[in-house]
Amino acid sequence: MSSETRIERSTRAEPLSAALASKGRFFVFEGIDGSGKSTVSRRFAERLTAVGKDVVWTAEPTSSWMGDQVRRANREAESAFAETLLYVADRAEHTLQIRKWLEEGRWVVCDRYVGSTLAYQGVTLRRLMGPRTMEWLKAVNQPIIIRPDRTFLLKLDPELAMSRLMDREGRDKFEKLDFLRKVDALYARLAEDDPSYRVIDASQPVERVLDEAFLMIR
């Protein structure tokens, strides 16, 4: 898929231990808008490459034709259900590619995955579905997803996140303070329920965030 970004190996890479070098692994970065997911996930992929791994950095929505439809729905869809199902369809295609990379022994680093749908669409659909929302979203996604080895939740106060977003061009409909507060609360619940989650304070300098994430993969 065109969503792949292959991180080139460093010529001065040092190998990981044999235990970590034996198979592909899957790492996901989640968090509210403004938490630094894209920057941190890319830098994380670069660090893994520097220690000898064959790394793919990828993201959702993907850069495929299906991801294009997700972005269009984000701008134009009147039905929250239609938009949600496009996110799921994009993930179904993406997961097939992720599975292939993992079977090849590559390490996959993903900027957003199923947690984003559970948190963001969990807020969007609640006014339509009430308390059944999360159960429905999990049921729709469960047949198509792969459980990450680690899901790094970059935790950031929504007010600080909004201050980071003030200068961003093309801000979307999700980047509103009240909405982000609700998404943040759902992410906290997901982190409590899913053992793959590790929470990192995203208000720290990027290098400190990266250091903490790197320690959590071993």
Rank of each mutant, 00 (worst) to 15 (best):
residue 192 E to A: 14
residue 148 P to I: 06
residue 180 L to V: 08
residue 187 Y to W: 14
residue 181 R to S: 10
residue 167 D to M: 15
residue 189 R to H: 12
residue 151 T to W: 02
residue 192 E to L: 06
residue 177 L to E: 07
residue 159 E to S: 13
residue 161 A to V: 07
residue 195 P to F: 11
residue 160 L to K: 15
residue 185 A to S: 13
residue 187 Y to C: 05
residue 189 R to N: 12
residue 158 P to H: 03
residue 153 L to D: 00
residue 164 R to T: 10
residue 168 R to Y: 06
residue 193 D to N: 12
residue 172 D to A: 01
residue 156 L to V: 15
residue 149 D to G: 01
residue 173 K to H: 13
residue 189 R to W: 08
residue 146 I to A: 06
residue 182 K to M: 14
residue 176 K to Q: 15
residue 177 L to F: 09
residue 188 A to N: 13
residue 151 T to N: 10
residue 194 D to L: 08
residue 145 I to Q: 05
residue 168 R to E: 07
residue 175 E to I: 07
residue 180 L to G: 00
residue 150 R to K: 14
residue 156 L to H: 04
residue 168 R to P: 14
residue 197 Y to H: 10
residue 154 L to K: 04
residue 164 R to N: 08
residue 179 F to V: 12
residue 171 R to L: 08
residue 178 D to T: 15
residue 198 R to Y: 10
residue 178 D to F: 09
residue 157 D to M: 08
residue 157 D to T: 12
residue 198 R to V: 15
residue 201 D to F: 07
residue 166 M to V: 14
residue 192 E to K: 12
residue 163 S to W: 11
residue 199 V to M: 02
residue 192 E to C: 07
residue 179 F to A: 04
residue 173 K to L: 12
residue 153 L to M: 09
residue 165 L to H: 01
residue 193 D to K: 14
residue 201 D to M: 09
residue 151 T to M: 04
residue 159 E to F: 07
residue 186 L to C: 02
residue 182 K to G: 03
residue 155 K to Q: 14
residue 164 R to L: 09
residue 165 L to N: 03
residue 188 A to M: 11
residue 199 V to C: 08
residue 152 F to H: 06
